[in-house]
């Protein structure tokens, strides 16, 4: 019969149409913005800077090494080093960024800055509703807007954050043990008679 193929096709469409009232996997539309899809854990949108503790200026992990600025493919990061130093999470004085700007209209969310950062200071955020009507300045994020706490990092990427915390803690204990061993060796060397110098 002519038109049989078309009628069979229409039967499929009808099955999908009626099925969308009945079964969940046929009704695939999500009524955004009233409903939102839950995000996956690995989702990445734009970068943000991590700080430990409560004070974002004191706890900022970034030491302005500028590796992310060099490796960024579209060169959207702009860093200016500070003149003074502040202590980092192990207590060693490090430089910090006086200016850290990311131009979100240039950033392509490639995550290379996260991969190359040796200090786990920059990570990917999941915030995507960032539209603004200011064309040039509105999408330029400064240090204040980019700094978010480690607690926020745990909320958005729990497994990754747990791993980072784990290896930062391990690094801290290793350095403390090394410092303690060096201190003990120095104390022993001072107390031993050989330290008093050759007998004149």
């Amino acid at each position: 019969m002519l038109g049989e193929g078309i009628l069979k096709g229409m039967a499929e469409t009808a099955r999908n149409f009626v099925g969308s009232y009945v079964s969940k996997d046929r009704l695939v539309t999500v009524q955004y913005p009233e409903e939102r899809l839950p995000l996956k854990e690995a989702t990445r949108q734009f970068p943000f800077l991590v700080y430990d503790g409560d004070d974002w200026q004191k706890g900022l992990r970034c030491v302005a090494c500028q590796i992310c600025e060099k490796e960024c493919p579209p060169k959207c990061i702009y860093i200016e080093k500070s003149k003074d130093k502040k202590p980092d999470y192990i207590g060693k004085p490090q430089l910090y960024p006086a200016t850290f700007d990311i131009d979100l209209s240039v950033c392509m969310s490639c995550q290379i800055c996260v991969e190359v950062c040796p200090f786990d200071a920059i990570k990917m955020d999941t915030e995507y509703e960032l539209s603004t009507d200011d064309r040039f300045g509105g999408l330029l994020s400064h240090k204040e807007q980019l700094a978010k706490s480690n607690g926020h990092y745990h909320q958005i990427h729990p497994t990754e954050a747990a791993e980072v915390d784990g290896h930062l803690a391990a690094e801290k204990t290793r350095l403390e043990a090394k410092a303690k061993a060096a201190g003990e060796a120095k104390a022993r060397a001072k107390a031993s008679p050989a330290a008093l110098g050759p007998i004149r």
């Binding site: 996956k40 854990e41 690995a42 989702t43 990445r44 392509m108 969310s109 490639c110 995550q111 290379i112 991969e115 990917m124 497994t159």
Partner: peptide, 24 residues
């Protein structure tokens, strides 16, 4: 793809000598 690489379309997942992250 999103749960593996982080992005739906612009994945940036392969690296020279392997892949970027392991399967979650």
């Amino acid at each position: 793809f999103e749960s593996l690489t982080g992005a739906r379309m612009m994945c940036n997942y392969m690296r020279f000598g392997g892949c970027r992250v392991d399967l979650p």
